[in-house]
Every structure is written in structure tokens, then in C-alpha cells.
Design a protein around this nucleic acid. Structure first.
Lengths: 217, 217
DNA sequence: GCAAGTATGTTGTTAAACCAACGGAGTAAA
DNA sequence: TTTACTCCGTTGGTTTAACAACATACTTGC
């Protein structure tokens, strides 16, 4: 396995924390690493959970179990990504989703109460950790708000225009990092219908585009 | 004006904080009260803002200024409600929305850095304040996630069924606190079309309802 | 270059939401 | 009781998305 710091240094939770402080924090809050085989359950829906998880290697699937017994994938998480922090911070101790190892993987667990409580040695990095956690939640919040703004639009055209408006800088030109399939999934519309709408918008003189390069007119 | 503590004690930020600690905190973090006349600008989009606001009396409107010059209301906030915390925590110092006094009002401002920084006397209540802020953001997060789950559904029927599934307890029966207009707004569908769909769902034997009392079958 | 596969755009059909307009039930005030 | 108003359901016409099926690049490995 790569160095843990190398894996996690770009995770929002550790922004601004150097390698020495990083390892000090890990020991200070009693972090634990556990290994799972593909298919193992990391958290089972309803479990009492007081930890957040960080994927060090492999991949996990976060699933929602519906009332009718069906379950669907909410998201898949890769190396360096975090899960469980929203439930931990929200004070929900029985986690309402199931987390499965999609591949053999290693997970670093941090106890939530130890993250937010000041440690015995009351190290200064706790403050940074907490600040990062606040930032992380708030930024996710903003992201979700933007997504809701988009999904509140009724038509594909409106959703595209709002999405473009959020993407573009001061100039009207920008490149998007998604293919049509992914873009359609984000906007919750059908791919081919979206393609058709894009063409119509171009014909109507609203936009110009070529592959992933767009221009608002 | 009523006692500030009375107004704010039920705000999530102050959960678990008693009246003495409350006033200690206010002085400790240098809270300020400002008054506004109806129509006054509290925050202007683009302003450098490092404070969160709490409505003590009156009402404010949070507006988004679109690129085309139009502006639309994102939300209205009443007594005891908070604004600006998401931007503050996300590290966005230039607030991207405009806040207007919809009526004459009084706002309590708290400096964000003083909320999260430990104070000179390093009082214990900061910890609680921070924990509350984390909880507040995380819970909003969960709420937004649920909303996105609903809006991701393509049809009115699917949105209704998911909404009902989230509302209902163990029994299939529940009462909703919204009228049809409000429900339609939440689900981002058209009121009359939703009414029609509800009728069809009843005819199809999926649900029973009478006014705001629903039953999943 | 060729074949296979992937991504994107096009078209016509079907199903569904939107929209406007209206009717009926319930409520509250005059 | 009458009037006005609000809320909710219904209906028919219009618009639009979903869907399936296909066409057209573009890419990649051989």
C-alpha cells in the first residue's frame, strides 16, 4: 500500500495539514485500518456507527435498501474518498445505508467524537480538522443546492442553460469534463433527447458547441 | 424586542446551550445587532462577508441575481432563522446572493472565525457551538439529498411514491403538513397535473387519500 | 487499413407533463 | 343567506420528454 498520507493528503478533510501533523493526528484520535474482501459488508444499514471511513485502496459501494426490499447504488467511492461523515455529523448513529466492498479494499476509520473533541494534548490540528470538516459539509451543501436548482427546472433546455450558466466563466466559452451520457445523468434527462435538444438550441442560436466545447451566445 | 435567548434558543446552532452560556458566548464572540428598514440591503451579492446572520425580528429575502440581470427569490427567512452559514463555512467570502429586508427587521451577526476559533478564555461552549454547526450543516445535507432523490425521478407518480415512502412511518398511514400547491412546489410538478395523478394512483389501488391523510397500500 | 466498439446525433412514435379553464366543495365574512 | 374566496379535482388541447431504432463519426487494437 502507498503511504497513507500520499493517498489522503488531497482529501478535503486534511487540506492544510502537513505530513508530520497528519500522523500525529492519526495516533491522537486512534485511527484504525481494516481490510475487507470483495463483497464484505463494511457497514450494514441500521448498524450503530460512530466512525467515518476513508478508502485507502479498492472501491466501496454505498447502497440504499428500499422499503420493498430492493436496493440501489447511491454512489461508488474510490481511493481517498470518505463516507459516513454526513451521518456522523448529523448525529445519526444508526447508519441508514449499507456500505459494501466492491473490490478488496482497505479502510481507515476515524472516530467522529475524537475528531471533534479536543484531544488530551489539545493539539492545534484538531481546530484545522474541524474547520476542514465544516468546509467539506458546506461545500457539499452548495453543490447539492446547485443540483437542486437545476433539477427544479422542468424542461431539458432550461436545465442545460442553467448548467451552462454555472459552468461558464466570464467569457461565454467553456469545456465540460463529462461525456453526453454523464451529462444526461447529472441533469436527470435522457441522453438522446438531450442530444436532440442541444442541436435545437444550436439551431435556435442560443449556443454553439463542438464535442465538449461550448459557447453561450 | 423579545429576549434574544427566547428567540434563538430553538435555533439548531444553540441546541443544548443554556441562557447563561448563551450570553457568555455572545459577548465572547462579539455578536452585534443591526436594524434594517424594509427594503434595505443586508448583504449585497459580491460583498465581502465574514459573518452569519440570525433574524431576531422581521423577515428577510434571499435572492439570486441571474447573469441576465433577473433575480429570483431563493428563500424567505423569519424570526430565529439563520443565513450565510453555508458560505461562511465553505470559505466563500464573497457572498453570491443578495439579502434584503422584506420588513423592518433586526439581525444578530456572529463572526464566523470567532465561532470556530477557540476564544481567549477557551470557554467550553465553543465546542458545543461547533458541534451544533456541524450537525446543522450535515442535517441540511441529508435534507437536500432526499430532495435530490425525489427530483431525480422522471414522473410525477414516482416522485409522489418516493415522497410518501419518506413521509410514512411504520404503518402505511400519515398526514402531510402541506396543501396541494405546496406539495407540487416541493416535487417541482404542476399542481393540477399532480392532482390528476393522485386520483389515478387511487384508482390504480396504490394509495388511498382524503384531503391530507394518505395511506400507502 | 480494417473491424469492432464507443460516443454522439437524428428521427418518428408514444406517453406524459404542462397549461388554461372550469366546476364543486368548503369556509368566512357581510 | 348571500357573496367572495380558497382549495382541490377534472378535462381537453398543446408541448415536450422518453424511448427505440438507426445513422454517423471517431477511436482502438489488430
Amino acid at each position: 500500500m502507498k503511504d497513507i498520507f500520499e493517498i489522503l493528503k488531497n482529501n478535503s478533510l486534511f487540506i492544510g495539514i502537513g505530513i508530520e501533523d497528519f500522523y500525529k493526528i492519526l495516533s491522537c484520535i486512534g485511527a484504525q485500518i481494516k481490510s475487507y474482501r470483495r463483497g464484505d459488508v463494511v457497514f450494514f444499514s441500521g448498524n450503530l456507527v460512530s466512525e467515518v471511513g476513508l478508502v485507502l485502496s479498492g472501491r466501496v459501494k454505498v447502497m440504499r435498501e428500499a422499503a420493498d426490499g430492493n436496493s440501489n447504488i447511491l454512489t461508488e467511492l474510490y481511493e481517498s474518498e470518505m463516507f459516513g461523515e454526513t451521518f456522523a455529523c448529523a448525529g445519526i448513529d444508526h447508519i441508514p445505508v449499507t456500505v459494501l466492498a466492491a473490490e478488496d479494499c482497505e479502510i481507515l476509520f476515524l472516530n467522529y467524537r475524537k475528531i471533534i473533541g479536543t484531544c488530551a494534548s489539545s493539539c492545534a490540528f484538531h481546530t484545522k480538522l474541524i474547520e476542514n470538516m465544516l468546509m467539506l459539509l458546506a461545500q457539499k451543501n452548495l453543490f447539492l443546492n446547485r443540483k437542486i436548482e437545476i433539477l427544479s427546472k422542468r424542461s431539458t433546455r432550461e436545465r442545460l442553460l442553467l448548467f451552462f450558466d454555472l459552468q461558464r466563466g466570464v467569457s461565454g466559452k467553456f469545456t465540460i469534463p463529462y461525456n453526453r451520457e454523464e451529462l444526461a445523468a447529472m441533469l436527470c434527462v435522457e441522453r438522446s433527447a438531450m442530444s436532440a435538444e442541444l442541436s435545437r438550441m444550436q439551431a435556435d442560436g442560443l449556443i454553439r458547441f463542438q464535442k465538449n466545447e461550448f459557447e453561450l451566445l
